[in-house]
């Protein structure tokens, strides 16, 4: 299970990625995150909705009401042009971040034992 502290800066990216395919609502998104991460990351309700409200305020997503196929009316979110651009930016940022952090990561198996 990944701690929410580690992944914090990329919650918005994860949500935007899932919205590129199709508009979606809260629970569906949190379920997809769980599935795609093989149960290793479960996003909290409050994290999800603070992300929605942040993304909406910045104009990266738009919300609208829609009835679920069976049952209640839910708030759906769709990604905007600006959101897509922001997502690509974040992807590049992650590439760099990943490379930088990797510079400081030892191969756990061999080198760690030598210390």
């Amino acid at each position: 299970m990944i701690s929410s502290d580690v992944i914090r800066g990329y919650n918005d990216t994860i949500i935007l990625y899932l919205l590129i395919e199709t508009p979606s609502y809260g629970y569906e998104i949190s379920k997809k995150i769980k599935q795609l991460s093989n149960d290793r990351y479960v996003i909290k309700e409050t994290t999800l909705y603070s992300a929605f409200s942040r993304l909406e305020k910045k104009g990266y997503v738009e919300s609208f009401y829609q009835d679920k196929s069976h049952g209640k009316r839910r708030t759906y979110y769709r990604i905007t042009e600006a959101g897509l651009a922001y997502y690509q930016e974040k992807c590049q940022e992650w590439e760099i971040t990943k490379n930088v952090v990797n510079q400081f990561i030892k191969g756990v198996d061999e080198e760690w034992k030598q210390l």
Binding site: S4, K44, E45, T46, T47, S50, S53, R54
Partner: peptide, 13 residues
């Protein structure tokens, strides 16, 4: 347990 921390919302809103 999967609800999270309400302070997170307070901060953003």
């Amino acid at each position: 347990s999967e609800f999270g921390n309400i302070d997170e919302l307070i901060e953003v809103l």
